[in-house]
């Protein structure tokens, strides 16, 4: 695929006990795309991401990020990607601005802490400690940390799990603005409406394999073409729409 920044080819992960977590997945992600990986728990989403990120050994197959082989040069891949792991935790007892400085230093660079905190709407929290942040604030800070070295590709592993609807929508806006700056985003999620509004293309994974890959609209069309009939009457609005209408879009924290 031309213009692709990430190529994954027949990627497999088998653990020492013989368990095959990822059974050969292949896909490519275009520069600047928001790419979603969907699937139930245990489908192999996180394992797939960790192999691409250079955090886990690859059993077979290849993953190349901007031309760098993640299996051979995990350290070089780490230089050009930003990673927000599923459970974001930071050293306690150090301020947000101090953490940002230290994380930038790990890439050998310096960072304008107030600019990056403003970007994730935490400008007033420079002297706060991460253990005192709300769930949404922590996720936004975690994304700020992943951006300190201006990565080419940003990996977000279930970024909105556990957030209230306001915080979730707020994070979608943030992801869109990062994408608008030309950063390629690869994310996993459990929330289908999230994938539908945010992702340019999605891969559906189950039992270690990709079982569908296309843009959300095309996937829905294909489903309808197969003769799918919704179980319930299509609602003009959802309960979430009601909730947002009643409580407003403003973020609470």
């Amino acid at each position: 695929m031309s213009g692709a920044i990430l190529h994954v080819k027949d990627l497999k992960k088998e653990y020492a006990d013989g368990f095959e977590a990822v059974k050969g997945v292949s896909f490519s992600v275009k520069q600047g795309e928001i790419f979603g990986i969907l699937g139930p728990n245990g489908a192999g989403k996180t394992t797939t991401l960790e192999m691409i990120e250079g955090l886990r050994d690859i059993t077979s197959g290849t993953a190349t990020v901007d031309g760098i082989d993640a299996g051979k040069y995990p350290e070089r891949v780490k230089e050009i990607i930003g990673v927000q792991p599923q459970s974001s935790a930071f050293l306690d007892g150090v301020k947000l601005k101090e953490l940002l400085v230290a994380f930038a230093a790990m890439y050998g660079s310096r960072v304008d802490t107030s600019a990056i905190l403003d970007k994730v709407e935490l400008g007033s929290k420079a002297d706060a400690y991460p253990e005192h942040l709300s769930g949404g604030q922590r996720q936004r800070f975690s994304i700020a940390v992943a951006l300190v070295h201006q990565p080419k590709v940003l990996f977000l592993d279930e970024p909105t799990t556990g957030l209230d609807p306001q915080a979730r929508r707020n994070l979608w806006d943030l992801v869109r603005s990062i994408s608008d700056e030309g950063v390629t985003v690869i994310m996993t999620t459990h929330y289908m409406e999230e994938a539908q509004v945010l992702c340019d293309r999605v891969a559906v994974m189950d039992e270690g394999k990709i079982i569908a890959l296309d843009n959300p609209t095309a996937l829905i069309k294909a489903l309808l073409k197969r003769g799918f009939k919704p179980h319930v009457e299509v609602q003009a609005a959802t309960l979430e729409d009601v909730f947002i209408d009643l409580t407003g879009k403003a973020i609470r924290e």
Partner: peptide, 16 residues
């Protein structure tokens, strides 16, 4: 304790 919280794991995502 830092491993349990994931704070060390986060450092590992960087070139450190």
């Amino acid at each position: 304790a830092l491993k349990k919280s994931g704070a060390l794991g986060r450092l590992r995502t960087t070139p450190l």
